[in-house]
Structure formats: C-alpha cells, structure tokens
Design a protein around this nucleic acid. Structure first.
Length: 282
DNA sequence: CGCCAGGCTTCTA
DNA sequence: TAGAAGCATGGC
C-alpha cells in the first residue's frame, strides 16, 4: 500500500503518508487530457461524469468534498491505489535505465480510466500535440457530454453515435471526427463490446479495437493500457521507439515485461522531459 | 511563414 | 507489401 490511512474529514477524503504520488507527474504526463492545474499542487478535472478537486500537501493527498463511498467506489481504482508502486519501483530500479527514469519522476502512476473515454481520447490524439488534444477533448465534452455541477462529463458512445460527422464541427477535430463517430456507432450498436474486450486475450483485444476506422496499433495499445488496465502493453509512438532504441539496444528486460506499460510511462516522461536522457547512453 | 504534433488510411511502385 | 503522401487544425 502506498499510504498508511484513509480518513474522512470535513474537507473530504484524505490519504496520509502517501508515496509514489505526485499530481503533476500523474495528471500531466500525457495519459489523461481532462485535468488542469489550479493552485500550487492542486488540480481539478473530470473522469467519466465525475468532477474532482485534488491537492497534495506534504505527504497528505486531499480529495476535496467527496464521500468515502465515492473514494472507495471510484477514485481509489482510478488512481490505481490498489497497486503498490513502492514495491513496483523497487523492482524497476534494479534495472539501471529504469532507475534513472523512476528517479526523474517517482510520483508517476498509471490511471485506470474508463475504456470508452480512453479509446475516444486517444483516437483524438493521433497526429496531434498534447496541448491541442486537451482542447479537443474539452470541446467534445462541452458540446456532447452530460452537464454536471462543475462542467461536463465525457460523452457516452450512445450520445455520439446518433451524430453525423458535421455535428462534430465545433470540436474542430478535423479528419478525426469520422473516426470518433465510427467508434461510437460500433460500441453503441454492440458491434464492439468493450466489456468483452476486457476478458479477451491481448492479441484478440487489440484486433477487436483495430476494427474501428482510425484505430491502429498505437491508439489500440493506448486504450488497452489506459482504459483496459493492460499493464504489460507499451504503446509505440515516435518517442517510445526512440527511447527503446537508445536505452535498450539489447531489448527491454524480460523481467519487467508484465509491467512494461507502466515502465513505459516513466520512460516516456523521462525522454520527453529530461534533455540528456538519450544523450547519456550515447 | 513553415514545421510538427502520443497516427492512420490510402495510394503507389 | 513496404514506403510515402495526404489528412484538418493550430501552437510555436
């Protein structure tokens, strides 16, 4: 466990003595696009149709104004708090390359996002930069998501399935609009059963997702890692190709394979944000 | 202004 | 069947 206690206070739910948990690392490392920094060490954001304000002070994390029920029933899983990242990092750090990547951002965790939300978000991510992806996702929610107190939920596939490509114009997603509609229609129509994808062997799950027009290997793997909890999957984009070629010319260590996707999150952040991450290894 | 972005589809040889 | 072009959009 990465914390000692969880208690309800008048402010919300608090996690005490937290480790391996930095909001900036978790919420701004290209896995979710719905979080915004507010004040110092404070973020607000959405997951599905829930809003959250979360902050960290010292070794205490505060989930503002939520019930214990909400924490136990939703946010605990979302932040992958049932996984012991302390233990995991111990294993990772036996590898000299991972030791550097983990040391660079030890607060990273891989969020367990809703499958549809992850799939749809990463469809929008293709050939796009993170700043802009956030804008697209935001406009998709504002236009088609369910209004909730502090904003909008992520639109359900059923809500998008009945739209035409032109209806997505306000999102300004360009050629990706038709991909989103196709995905929504397949999911909504039952042609692609996301619940079933959870239980499929990896290769079958991957090819199921790739049936969608506009979903290739990279987007499918992002959905699998971030939306289906497949911790072993490494989404291969230009950065990860560069990272693996430069840092692991002999291949990624077999011992870490079951958590390769989690390792990927540290490596991705490391090579993108540490100027000489790749230079050092020559 | 040109370049590029957590890619994919389509076209071409 | 591999490799390049085209795709919408906007931040820099």
């Amino acid at each position: 466990m990465d914390y000692s206690t969880v208690i309800q206070t008048d402010k919300g739910v608090e996690l005490r003595d937290i480790r391996c948990f930095e909001l900036a690392d978790i919420l701004d490392c290209g896995q979710s696009f719905r979080w915004k920094p507010e004040a110092q060490d404070t973020y607000t954001g959405f997951a599905q149709e829930r809003f959250l304000r979360i902050s960290k002070q010292g070794s205490t994390v505060l989930f503002h104004n939520i019930s214990m029920e909400d924490f136990e029933g939703f946010w605990r899983n979302y932040f992958d708090l049932d996984r012991d990242y302390g233990d995991l990092q111990e294993l990772f750090m036996q590898d000299p390359v991972m030791a550097k990547a983990v040391a660079f951002a030890p607060g990273i965790r891989v969020l367990r996002q809703h499958s549809w939300e992850a799939l749809c978000s990463f469809i929008l991510s293709q050939n796009n930069n993170i700043i802009r992806i956030k804008g697209l996702v935001e406009r998709l929610c504002e236009n088609f998501g369910k209004p909730i107190d502090q904003g909008f939920g992520f639109p359900a596939p059923q809500a998008l399935a009945q739209l035409d490509v032109e209806d997505l114009a306000p999102v300004r997603s360009g050629f990706r609009a038709k991909y989103v509609i196709d995905a929504a229609r397949r999911v909504s129509g039952g042609e692609l059963d996301l619940t079933e994808v959870y239980s499929l062997p990896l290769e079958e799950a991957r090819s199921q997702l790739q049936q969608i027009h506009g979903v290739g290997p990279k987007v499918a793997d992002c959905a699998l890692l971030y939306g289906f909890g497949r911790a072993e999957v490494i989404p291969m984009d230009v950065w990860m190709k560069r990272a693996l070629a430069g840092l692991y010319p002999e291949g990624f260590p077999d011992k870490l394979r079951p958590w390769a996707g989690l390792a990927q999150q540290y490596l991705f952040h490391y090579v993108r944000n540490c100027p000489d991450a790749l230079a050092i290894e020559e």
